[in-house]
């Protein structure tokens, strides 16, 4: 815990037009840890990820990644950083016109000079990790929702990123596949020393993988700490979440 955070967000404000979604967010994401972002649906979790990744420009505040301030950073410098990160989007966001294989090949071809033979092997392995080897030549429109999500995860981890962002990776997956996803995420964290940021609502999954929790409520980060601390804290919104999920 004493390690320096790999992502440090300070006083970030995010808006869509006039509509303020996040105000004054402070959050730390630590290396080699799984940080889970919690919050009711529509409270701005996806918005937080997208603002950290500069897919939207935050209104104000500071975001440090890998110890470097990224607000106001040159586009090209930021692109180099993007090669060290992967993101699994909420709806997969596979390119519909390309088969699964080419979708995963894109980041590899964009960010490395690896020979095609090696790229092919990496793609096969990554697809096997998400248990989707049979779909290698299929088009996204021929996959089910859960399969699309797994293919998207394979694309997100194609480059062995240092930070992996997952937006609701297990929604739409059956419990078995979802557990397998959790195992894969733990494997990535332990073996590849990845730092992982996950948005999820699955309590079982949170107990399996979470090291730290950040809880968003009404545009603010109301809690940030370890899983243990979260379960023993006295913030009503957080407690309700863990209580309701328990039955």
């Amino acid at each position: 815990m004493e390690k320096k955070p790999i992502i440090r967000v300070r006083n970030m404000v995010a808006k869509y037009g006039e509509n303020t979604i996040l105000q004054d967010i402070n959050a730390d994401f630590y290396p080699q840890q799984v940080t889970v972002i919690l919050g009711s649906s529509g409270c701005g979790k996806t918005t937080l990820l997208k603002n950290i990744l500069r897919l939207y420009q935050p209104e104000s505040g500071s975001i440090e990644m890998f110890g470097v301030e990224t607000m106001g950073m040159e586009e090209t410098a930021f692109e180099a950083l993007l090669g060290r990160m992967g993101m699994l989007f909420q709806n997969g966001a596979l390119l519909n016109s390309l088969p699964v294989y080419d979708n995963i090949a894109i980041p590899l071809e964009q960010h490395t000079c690896l020979p095609p033979e090696i790229i092919r092997r990496i793609i096969e392995v990554k697809l096997n990790l998400v248990n989707l080897s049979h779909a290698i030549n299929m088009l996204p429109s021929e996959l089910s929702g859960g399969m699309r999500k797994r293919a998207a995860l394979a694309r997100a981890i194609a480059l062995d990123p240092e930070i992996l962002f997952c937006d609701e990776p297990s929604s739409g997956l059956d419990p078995l596949t979802s557990a397998a996803m959790d195992n894969l995420i733990l494997k990535l964290k332990n073996q590849l020393k990845m730092s992982i940021v996950i948005v999820t609502h699955e309590l079982a999954s949170i107990h399996r993988i979470a090291d730290r929790i950040i809880f968003l409520d009404q545009g603010k980060a109301v809690f940030s700490g370890t899983l243990q601390e979260a379960m023993n804290c006295n913030i009503p919104a957080v407690l309700t979440f863990f209580e309701v999920g328990k039955f």
Binding site: R121, E124, S133, H134, I136, N137, Q191
Partner: peptide
């Protein structure tokens, strides 16, 4: 060694 086992493609069937 663990990493190697996670990412090795030798055990995979060749893609159709």
């Amino acid at each position: 060694r663990e990493q190697y086992h996670t990412f090795s493609s030798l055990a995979l069937d060749a893609a159709p």
